[in-house]
């Protein structure tokens, strides 16, 4: 039977390195299958986080040959036969053990987002065309691959000032909701740090749910921030009209 060679990161916060494993290949096998085989037959102490194995829970995020991927959605036959496949934990987050990282920072960011604010005295009905746009953002499975690949967090380490693409998607889902009365433009500019995003679209490239993060969420939010904070014509309009334009 054909074999695959995997180089899997083994270690914790104190350090570690890649360790080689050989796994029998089966048709339709994904990287998570190979990791499970290693765990079941060679290294029972190998730590890996997973749940659904159906690309819906967002748990098995890792870096396969240097690219952020869901291991359950990454087929082994997508890689050249005979070449080792390197599996490492997400590099943006602190390592716990082996392939498991500590992603709790994301949940702290999430708490800071101004929540859904229902319109007062409005009829609680809306049409499909009003919700289509927001439904794309609801596909997010919180795998945090976009957070992992975003260079603002990954390379520049601006976790102090930037919420990251996942939470800009969440804000977009609230901001564009037809029944939401909140205005998060100032939050986006000052707290979420949307100006730190230089729209290089890596988040969109890695999203396993194919959410067009940059074009449909981040850029429209940047434009809303411009409406509120940078557009002098809009400011003049607000000054003279005494209210927000329609």
């Amino acid at each position: 039977m054909a074999e695959a060679v995997l180089h899997v990161y083994r270690g914790d916060a104190q350090g570690g390195g890649l360790k080689e494993y050989r796994v029998p290949l089966e048709e339709g096998m994904v990287v998570l299958d190979a990791i499970h085989h290693i765990q079941g037959h060679q290294a029972p102490d190998l730590a890996v986080r997973w749940n659904c194995k159906a690309a819906k829970c967002g748990s098995c995020s890792a870096e396969v040959n240097g690219r952020p991927k869901l291991m359950c959605k990454t087929r082994m036959d997508a890689y050249p036969a005979g070449e080792p496949i390197v599996v490492q934990p997400m590099k943006t987050f602190p390592i716990v053990k082996d392939l498991v990282t500590d992603v709790k920072w994301n949940y702290e960011v999430n708490k800071k987002i101004p929540p859904f604010t229902p319109k007062q005295n409005a009829e609680w009905r809306w049409k499909q065309e009003d919700i289509d746009r927001v439904q794309e953002f609801r596909k997010c499975i919180e795998c945090f691959l976009c957070q992992d690949v975003c260079h603002v967090l990954r390379s520049h380490r601006r976790t102090d000032a930037f919420a990251g693409p996942r939470f800009l998607v969440r804000v977009a889902g609230l901001e564009m909701h037809p029944m939401d009365a909140g205005n998060r433009a100032t939050f986006l500019k000052d707290e979420a740090g949307i100006g730190l995003c230089n729209i290089t679209k890596c988040c969109t490239e890695v999203c396993p749910e194919d959410i067009t993060i940059t074009d449909n969420a981040i850029i429209p939010l940047k434009e809303r921030v411009v409406d509120e904070h940078y557009d002098p014509l809009r400011k003049l309009f607000r000054l003279f009209a005494g209210k927000k334009e329609p």
Binding site: W105, E108, S155, T159, F162
Partner: peptide, 14 residues
Amino acid sequence: MAQRAQAAPAATER
């Protein structure tokens, strides 16, 4: 935003 608890194992710095 809260600071990172600790560094990741091998950040791509260069």
